[in-house]
Write a protein that binds this DNA or RNA. Structure first.
Lengths: 259, 259
DNA sequence: CGATACGTTGATCCATTTCAAGATTGGTGG
DNA sequence: CCACCAATCTTGAAATGGATCAACGTATCG
């Protein structure tokens, strides 16, 4: 997505301009984009980690991330596991509308701003706007596709590959919404949280972070990820972006031949 | 679900009687159940493994499993990874309707029978039957919830726990649709495929299967799983069925206190 | 009866956990 | 400005889980 295009979209739709950006946003007309924007009746700003929605809670609203990042967190026997990451533009608990209650917690990572949509309004939308309904459904299916990629990454890779995949995916997704730089991106996750997302101990994550740094694949330091060699990163993580269903050239079949 | 209730439902709706059985099926009226049943224009029977849909393929129909089981398979560098399992009643590539193309393969395991629904008919349904649309969406969200549970299982458990969780989940899901027995269930997966689903080598899966057998937790032999002690199985796999959103007593909060 | 797929076993090596201790960093109040 | 604190990051050594390689056993079926 071209930077000026993204800026224009954000000027017009300051709250939801990043929704499906880089994916199926082009499938929305201006009227539809306006409808989505008008769903947000209320926003909230956080200066640090904050729980958006809790497991078991029954919800009457859904949340979109406007600024900052969020994680899906599951707690088992006091240990914390991250099962998903979300960035600006992501409708993070849209599934709460149809599931009624959540199976996990949603928390912001560091400061951020979110918008709320009452489920009543979603109900109306679903009845009267089947095309938008389908796009919202699509958004939840993207989450499921990402889940599947996490599963296969956990099944096939050791810690280095898992971390590389996480970084590669995050870089790509931030790129969709205009928040990636040429040389890397900001990531509000410390080593503890990286280990929670990769299924390792923090001690081992520390050594893994060092591995990637020393092999010139990625430098993670104080909330900033710098990537000297994207090719090496993608190779180590077995990253092929087709599962993110991005616009443009990212189609199934474009991946590396041996993958 | 009571056995006679299930039999009655299957007598009335032989193709789709298991759809959402044990979960939100009660939310469908008889008219809606009839509509779903009438979606199936064609069925197909397989006497062994068969590819239902392939990665990258653009689909014009979706598939429901009537008999047998299916797996979501991702192939990376010639290695095979199972990222999901499905049983009778599951609408296995419903997401293909909104995603247009799939990010993974769908294959039946052993013999089975499936039904096909043209996407045209889904389109009409989505416009005219918002309540059913929401239930179909719910079905894809269940898949996502299962994905998340697989992620957290891979992150926290060693091979024994992963296998135990897989067995516990499958037993529970088969129970929803009336295909579980008191002492176990049939599972058309050999040790190779179990290892593909648990992210281990087949050699190690062999030792893991033996571990569970020798510790009196589960006996896996030629397509049949016998479970002497469900409590031990659930404990080893950290299994709490609330994420399956079953009817009845399975609510969030009912899990073991220390979980 | 031999092919073939699947299951089993042992030995060695590597990835990762575990436990224990220190070092660095970014605040905070005196 | 410094002392101190809490959180985070770092390192080392020993123990364990799992991969790897190589071989052999055992069903099943035409």
């Amino acid at each position: 997505m071209a930077p000026d295009q993204i800026a224009e979209e954000l000027a017009r739709y300051p709250l939801t301009g990043r929704f499906l950006m880089g994916r199926a946003r082009h499938a929305m007309g201006e009227r539809e984009k306006g409808l989505i924007e008008s769903l947000i009746e209320e926003t909230e700003t956080f200066d640090g980690p904050h729980t958006i929605a809790e497991r078991g809670q029954s919800l009457d609203r859904s949340t979109i991330i406007i600024e900052g990042m969020a994680a899906r967190v599951m707690t088992k026997k006091r240990a914390r596991y991250i099962v998903g990451l979300h960035m600006p533009g992501d409708f993070v608990d849209l599934h709460g509308y149809a599931l009624k209650r959540l199976d996990h917690n949603l928390v912001t990572l560091g400061p951020g701003r979110v918008g709320y949509v009452q489920h009543d309004r979603l109900r109306t939308l679903f009845r009267e706007e089947p095309h938008l309904a389908r796009l919202l459904w699509f958004a939840t299916l993207l989450d499921a596709a990402i889940h599947r990629e996490w599963i296969v990454t956990l099944e096939r890779h050791t810690a280095d590959g898992r971390l590389a995949h996480l970084l590669a995916e995050t870089w790509c997704r931030l790129g969709f919404v205009g928040l990636a730089d040429d040389d890397g991106f900001d990531l509000p996750l410390n080593q503890i949280e990286l280990s929670n997302a990769c299924g390792t101990t923090t001690v081992h994550m520390n050594r893994t972070v060092r591995n990637l740094r020393e092999s010139g694949i990625a430098v993670i330091r104080r909330g900033r990820v710098t990537i000297p060699d994207q090719g090496k990163l993608n190779a180590l993580g077995g990253f092929d972006p087709s599962y993110l269903y991005g616009d443009g050239a990212l189609r199934v079949g474009d991946e590396l031949a041996d993958d």
